[in-house]
Design a protein around this nucleic acid. Structure first.
Length: 544
RNA sequence: GCCCUCGUAGCUCAGCUGGAUAGAGCAACGGACUUCUAAUCCGUAGGUCACACGUUCGAAUCGUGUCGAGGGUACCA
């Protein structure tokens, strides 16, 4: 509908011999200002050199001249030069049929045009259970994937991990210590070891399988391998429990086997971007616009995380995706400029790469902040959280806030099965809709697409219909910004309009015609709510 | 010190690419269930958009600076 208006304005500008400017049409906050408005007259002031009101008058006149189909009910000049449009309600209402026709596809677009996207997220090393902090990235990444899919992209979800570094060595040592403890032997726990209860469980599993045969083999691969596989299974279960399924898991180690790490070093060396200092190999960041040089290979001979990160991104680029999306927590944000600098030196363009950074999650319980540390095992795991408050609540809480706000996760609020919990507002709207439709069916009402939609002329009905018609634009916008939050906000607004409509008007009444018109509206609400919730990965219950 | 994110109602947050009188929810107070589910609705109250300059027809939104919060700034990831 918006496109329709824009092209009509364009036509008018052409007839008036005004230059074709960038035309923006928006929905005014205040409904008194019409269904749509444009500021085109004000932006033309400089080019046309006339007063904005005068320009607006001419455009309005031209639009009226062209208005043979009565698409516009009214066009008015307002304020400093806004042009406000009122669309013929019959035309607006008839758009509802489009929702019915498209049904579970309503809101999908083809702006992605089949392009391939790699979305990398979570990417936590298998050293322990996922925490609430990982949860935010998981839900965010997964939902961004959904949004892209709804817009015609082909999405691959990838989890990157490293099972070879220092962290994993400390993990193995921690398990070994607990293994000795299980055997009743004396042991020394690594200073920075992992203290979680799950380490005991892993040690016991190893004991059950191998008895005490490993007690003198502190460097046995079994400790690491067993820990890794148990923890990884656990991680995958936590994720799938939340509806997050990965297509691929990428092990950092393959970058060494394939020689890609070496290759990156060679390129950098040829470009004179490497030098040796203090027995370590440094990347000359200062030569490529970074403000400091960074170590790529430590004096121990081990690479820092930066080197494989760069090689990994080169690998992604070589796999030829049209778009590469990374989802990181704020604590990892600092690696990104290095990766981008590196990638450019490897002759790839960072334009295809979008990095989403989300801020931290703080957990509030009983009004106080819960401090968390993975190593000390004073964290709340993602499993605990989703078991505690439910999958739908977890997903909604992570999506209802912008990714760059510090998210305050109030456990008490989330657990609250009452009207204080915002996710129920949406789900209840859907359940109400379902109930009405079911009841209507029981009364023998049929959905009739030939119904007279002009009967829907209450204010709240108009608002509701207009809101429903906004949905496709909300979905494409969120694909462009790669932000799920607007969809969550939209669904909240839509639910609000529906609840209000419900409270003031009955759908099923003695008036058959009106009932059928309202049933069509109700059905449309169901479709949009269900589709929106689907994108967010939240269930749409038929009853509550 | 330097870099990133943020600062909007008592609390948690919206406010789209600069637009018209700044919006929700919660909490507070007062109403509405013999009705398609009251997990809802209606009303009241609540604001120097951290602060100061600047950009322009127009700034919560963009720019610079100050203050405040969080994160990063390692031969940890």
């Amino acid at each position: 509908m918006k496109d329709n208006i824009i092209s009509k304005i364009e036509l008018a500008l052409k007839s008036l011999d005004f230059p074709i400017h960038k035309i923006t049409v928006e929905i005014p906050r205040n409904p008194d200002h019409g269904d749509f408005s444009t500021n085109i007259a004000m932006t033309l002031v400089k080019v046309v050199k006339q007063a904005p009101q005068k320009i607006a008058q001419q455009i309005i006149q031209q639009l009226f001249n062209d208005n043979n189909d009565n698409f516009f009910e009214d066009i008015t000049l307002a304020g400093p030069g806004f042009i406000n449009f009122k669309i013929n309600p019959n035309f607006v209402n008839s758009q509802l049929k489009d929702i019915l026709v498209k049904s579970e596809n309503y809101g999908k677009s083809e702006i992605g045009n089949g392009q391939t996207v790699l979305v990398e997220f979570v990417s936590a090393n298998p050293t322990g259970p996922l925490t609430v902090g990982h949860g935010r990235g998981a839900i965010l990444g997964d939902t961004v994937g959904n949004i892209l899919e709804w817009n015609g992209y082909t999405v691959q979800r990838e989890y990157y991990f490293n099972d070879a570094g220092r962290q994993m060595r400390v993990l193995a040592q921690s398990v070994y210590a607990r293994y000795l403890e299980t055997l009743g032997e004396s042991f020394t726990f690594p200073e920075d070891g992992y203290q979680g209860e799950y380490i005991h469980d892993i040690a016991r599993t190893i004991f059950q399988k191998h008895g005490d045969s490993l007690k003198d083999q502190s460097d046995s691969e079994i400790f690491k391998k067993t820990a890794e596989s148990i923890i990884f299974e656990d991680i995958k279960k936590s994720l799938s429990n939340l509806g997050v399924i990965f297509d691929t898991f990428f092990n950092e180690h393959t970058l060494y086997d394939s020689g890609e790490i070496e290759e990156v070093l060679n390129v950098f060396r040829d470009k004179k971007l490497l030098y040796e200092k203090d027995n370590a190999t440094w990347f000359k960041g200062t030569a490529v616009g970074r403000n400091v040089d960074k170590v790529l290979i430590k004096s121990t001979g081990e690479p820092t995380y930066r080197l494989p990160d760069i090689a990994y991104h080169q690998n992604k680029f070589r796999r030829n995706y049209d778009l590469i999306v990374d989802v990181f927590g704020a604590d990892h944000a600092d690696t990104i400029p290095d990766v981008i600098a590196g990638i450019k030196e490897l002759d790839f363009s960072d334009e295809k790469m979008k990095v989403l950074i989300h801020q931290f999650v703080t957990i509030m319980k009983d009004g106080v902040q819960v401090k968390m540390s993975t190593r000390k095992a004073t964290f709340i795991t993602l499993d605990e959280l989703s078991n505690d408050v439910g999958v739908d609540v977890v997903r909604y809480f992570f999506l209802m806030r912008g990714m760059n706000t510090h998210l305050n996760f109030d456990i008490n609020l989330a657990k609250n099965q009452s009207d204080e919990n915002p996710v129920f507002y949406l789900q209840y709207a859907h359940a109400r809709v379902c109930n009405i439709l079911k009841r209507a069916e029981a009364f023998g009402h049929q959905l009739n697409s030939a119904v007279d939609l002009s009967l829907l002329n209450e204010d709240i009905e108009n608002q509701l219909i207009r809101k429903l018609l906004e949905f496709p634009e909300v979905v494409t916008n969120s694909a462009e910004s790669l932000e799920p939050q607007p969809i969550a906000n939209y669904l909240n607004d839509l639910s609000g309009f529906f609840h209000k409509f419900y409270a003031h008007h009955r759908v099923i009444s003695d008036d058959n015609e009106l009932t059928e018109a309202r049933l069509l509206l109700t059905k449309s609400v169901k479709i949009v709510l269900a589709n929106g919730l689907k994108i967010l990965g939240i269930s749409a219950p038929e009853r509550m």
